[in-house]
């Protein structure tokens, strides 16, 4: 039984926009899965349908075997959701927000207060429990939404861009928290624009574009489909003309930077040998972008035909 199973899901909005166009997707229990896609790809619509905030047009959604159409209550009880936009009652106290949320899931007040202490401490918000949500920083609000989603101990946690607008330090601490949560058995589905985040955290990945899943599978297998890697090299001496290196595509980004596209069949040793033969000494080397981003762009360019430029996901 999968944590999430989606079959032939479609969503056509009243204005005629087909946000989801026959998606099939399965997320195993205990998985940490990334949903990637450009803006408007259908990720948020998909999450909206699974969490009952958006009505599907057709198709089937099952969560831990429960059918959304016939067992909506069981589906909802299994899911915790952290939406993309802040949807807190900003005038309410932090403690009240989480305790009330637990109550909406049927947890008695004493149990809700216990869970509030656990969740707020986990997310480092316990000392803010008597403050109103509007006084929290952006990062704290995001953490509060995670605490709120965990109050009823969901088996499936869905996070829609949970670290958007959060500084690096808090983002890293949230990653650690999510890893630990997943390690303890919670299935996690994550959408993110930070592709590094997906590559670091997730075991499986599904790339969505124009309402369809265009690639999915284990992260390592999907990344293996990349047939080249791009490096940025800093030469010791300034270079005026890009050198011709057999089997490598070289561009000059400036006198102090070479961009080299290396086929996966070749090794970095081959590259350095070719550079030495050309008389170029290299001071430093780095990846041009993270590998997932390259794959993502390659896939959405290849299969998305005229995908709008604004739809590109970049860190």
């Amino acid at each position: 039984m999968h944590a999430l199973s989606v079959r032939q899901l479609t969503k056509v909005y009243a204005n005629g926009v087909r946000a989801i166009d026959g998606i099939d997707l399965e997320v195993p229990r205990g998985d940490f899965c990334a949903l990637l896609g450009p803006n408007g790809a259908g990720k948020t619509s998909l999450i909206g349908i699974v969490t009952s905030l958006v009505r599907k047009t057709s198709g089937e959604v099952r969560v831990f075997g429960h059918d959304l159409d016939t067992e909506a209550s069981a589906v909802k009880a299994s899911i915790g959701v952290v939406p993309q936009e802040i949807n807190l009652n900003l005038w309410d106290k932090v403690g009240n927000i989480v305790v009330n949320q637990a109550g909406f899931y049927g947890l008695p007040p004493a149990r809700a207060r216990q869970r509030a202490e656990v969740c707020l401490k986990q997310l480092q918000l316990w000392d803010k429990r008597d403050e109103t949500a509007r006084t929290l920083s952006g990062g704290m609000k995001r953490r509060l939404m995670i605490a709120r989603a965990l109050m009823h101990e969901p088996r499936l946690l869905i996070l829609d861009e949970p670290t958007a607008g959060v500084d690096i330090e808090i983002r890293r601490s949230m990653w650690e928290f999510l890893r630990a949560l997943n390690g303890a058995g919670t299935t996690i589905i994550l959408t993110t624009h930070y592709l590094e985040e997906a590559e670091n955290l997730c075991r499986n990945i599904a790339i969505i574009d124009r309402g369809r899943v265009i690639e999915r599978g284990p992260m390592t297998e999907v990344l293996a489909k990349l047939n080249e890697e791009v490096f940025l090299l800093t030469p010791r001496q300034p270079v005026d003309v890009p050198p011709s290196l057999a089997g490598f595509e070289v561009r000059l980004n400036g006198p102090q930077e070479l961009e080299v596209a290396m086929p996966r069949a070749r090794s970095v040793n081959d590259l350095f040998a070719a550079l030495s033969a050309a008389g170029i000494e290299i001071l430093s080397l780095r990846n041009k972008a993270n590998r997932l981003e390259e794959l993502f762009l390659a896939l959405t360019e290849r299969k998305g035909e005229a995908a709008p430029p604004a739809g590109r996901a970049r860190p």
Binding site: A72, A74, K76, V81, P83, E85, N87, N100, R148
Partner: peptide, 10 residues
């Protein structure tokens, strides 16, 4: 949008 707190709950 904090109505969603109730709508996602069972």
């Amino acid at each position: 949008r904090h109505l969603e707190e109730m709508l996602v709950a069972p």
